[in-house]
């Protein structure tokens, strides 16, 4: 039948309207209101305090010539590309292997997923200690006989971003694995049997049948990872605090620093608005695709 609880009488719908009021208020004032305010500030010449001197897109022009912002963008691009590729690959491989009826499956899953339960601060501090150039892994390498080995990436401006990648892959690969495992388990057992009867080798079944069927899991994982890339802040603060120099600065940290320490509201909000647009560009196609899928399912 068609959606059956259609309109109920006004008298009985009133409590529902009341119950929804807090959420509506939050959405209107604290989501839409603050977002528009942020966008508005970015079009003014505000410094320490907000003013309403409209300057158009000048802040975005300033932003486009700000070395620190440009470094943040470059860093996040490198970080994002490496992190997403690595997390997706490792996460999928782990899921595919765990799905091969291995022993101690639940133990392995726990081991791969536990980092995700911890905060970025904890993650950052743990890796910062292990990567410490005097007492961390480098010393371990020296102690076991590789006297010339160098593993001082965390203090090298050209390598520090990779250390962030390692730490965040450690943190998030388990999440990808969990999503992928759910996707794999959602594949009908009959598909496997049919492919086996056809005599296909396992890797071909994966590449040509299973992975295409898991588009949804990949899309979900991609969107989650991508938004976590844009949001990246705590990890950079805890692990390197943006350093050395500005070698591990990221946009979220740029915004926070300019808002609360450097007192340049307009520039900070211009950067925040840029982040917002990026997220919308990433999420909108996926959202549209999900919506279409839901509508198709509704019709079928």
């Amino acid at each position: 039948m068609v959606a059956a609880a259609k309109r109920l009488r006004i008298g009985s719908r009133l409590p529902a309207q009341i119950a929804l009021a807090p959420a509506l208020l939050i959405a209107l004032v604290l989501y839409c209101g603050t977002t528009s305010w942020t966008v508005w500030i970015s079009l003014t010449s505000s410094r320490m305090l907000p003013n309403s001197v409209f300057v158009g897109l000048r802040q975005y022009d300033v932003l486009a010539n700000n070395d620190r912002w440009l470094a943040s963008i470059a860093n996040i691009a490198t970080f994002g590309a490496l992190f997403m590729t690595a997390a997706l690959t490792i996460g999928f491989l782990l899921a595919a292997m765990i799905d091969q009826k291995v022993r101690a499956e639940s133990l392995l899953r726990s081991v791969f997923l536990y980092p995700f339960s911890m905060s970025f601060i904890v993650t950052g501090l743990a890796w910062r200690w292990m990567l410490d150039p005097t007492l961390g892994f480098e010393k371990l390498l020296h102690d076991i006989g590789f006297a010339d080995a160098h593993f001082d990436w965390i203090v090298r401006p050209d390598r520090v971003i990779y250390t962030l990648v390692i730490a965040s892959v450690w943190h998030a690969a388990g999440l990808v694995m969990a999503i992928m495992l759910a996707g794999l388990r959602g594949v009908d057992r009959e598909i496997w049997n049919a492919a086996r009867v056809d005599g296909l080798p396992t890797w071909r079944i994966f590449v040509f049948i299973i992975i295409p069927m898991m588009r949804g899991s990949f899309a979900t994982a991609c969107v989650l990872l991508a938004t976590s890339v844009v949001k990246l802040y705590d990890l950079s603060v805890a692990m390197t605090n943006g350093g050395p120099g500005i070698a591990s600065e990221v946009p979220a940290k740029f915004v926070m620093d300019y808002l609360f320490e450097r007192g340049n509201l307009a520039l900070a909000t211009a950067a925040a608005t840029t982040m917002l647009i990026t997220v919308v560009v990433v999420v909108a196609p996926w959202y549209h695709w999900q919506g279409r899928k839901a509508r198709m399912a509704g019709i079928a």
Binding site: V29, G33, M256, A268
Partner: peptide, 19 residues
């Protein structure tokens, strides 16, 4: 709500502090 779930806090933070 679905859109907000993905947006970085930096977009909301300053006006929220003021409010």
């Amino acid at each position: 709500l679905m859109v907000v779930a993905f947006i970085p806090y930096q977009v909301f933070i300053y006006p929220l502090v003021r409010i």
